[in-house]
């Protein structure tokens, strides 16, 4: 393998010493097929241990390491060096996702995001006695909501949304995706309540169909389409 030279330009902020955020550039070497996360680890483990970022699974399923890479939201563990910097290396800029308060370096406060998630009743509601076997659901019924079950709550969609940047009260794409997941589940009985919630002033009607969320989703969820389907359900009062 041939290593390439990288300049990692990282937005830094340490609340204990820095009056405001600033940029810092690190030079590292990486294999072009490395993840951007690997390059961040090289900085942290070999050059500057104070660099803080969240990560866990390192292969795109836990949702910890959403960040803005070269100006677009991505998971650092899915974004490869040759894509971010080109096959011969170069510069990669890394910043925290936008619209949530930065706590330190690439770590933002996720609490507002999860509060929005919790607000849409993100759980199956069915008050019928299910008995001792599974509830039946046809493959077609399951297919109706499968796409939105893929959400890993990484916040890449919500924090790429220009409406959310301007109005942090907007419930945001991720919460709507999780509402969609239950609204269109044939087993669920709380669709009306959820539609009322997303019909509020801070709900789906804030969406301006910018498609940023769909582009940002590392799971390939058709986020904008899901939001449109929820809008239509609110409008027609049926799913």
């Amino acid at each position: 393998m041939t290593l390439v030279d990288l300049e990692l330009k990282i937005r830094r902020y340490n609340p204990d010493v820095d009056p405001k955020p600033h940029w810092q550039t690190f030079k590292v070497q990486a294999d072009p097929t490395d993840r951007v996360l690997d390059a961040l680890h090289t900085v942290k483990w070999e050059q500057d241990g104070t660099l803080s970022f969240r990560r866990s699974c390192a292969h795109g399923v836990c949702g910890s390491d959403a960040m803005m890479i070269n100006g677009a939201n991505a998971l650092a563990c899915i974004e490869l060096v040759h894509k971010a910097a080109g096959p011969k290396g170069g510069r990669i800029t890394v910043e925290p996702i936008r619209g949530l308060p930065v706590i330190k370096d690439l770590v933002v406060d996720m609490e507002p995001f999860f509060a929005q998630y919790r607000s849409v009743l993100p759980y199956l509601v069915n008050n019928d006695e299910p008995g001792y076997t599974e509830r039946l659901q046809s493959p077609e019924e399951r297919a109706r909501y499968e796409d939105t079950t893929k959400c890993i709550l990484c916040a890449a969609c919500t924090t790429s949304c220009p409406v959310f940047w301007g109005n942090s009260g907007y419930v945001g794409p991720a919460a709507i995706v999780n509402a969609h997941r239950f609204i269109f589940d044939s087993r669920d009985q709380a669709g009306d309540q959820r539609l009322d919630i997303v019909n509020q002033r801070s709900g789906v009607w804030r969406c301006r169909t910018a498609y940023s969320c769909t582009e940002a989703c590392p799971r390939g969820i058709k986020v904008t389409q899901a939001i449109q389907e929820v809008k239509r359900a609110v409008f027609t009062d049926r799913v």
Binding site: S56, C57, H59, V61, C62, G63, S64, I152, L153
Partner: peptide, 10 residues
């Protein structure tokens, strides 16, 4: 972590 970051999810 956050609960949904746990490795069960992998």
């Amino acid at each position: 972590l956050y609960p949904t970051r746990s490795h069960t999810g992998a």
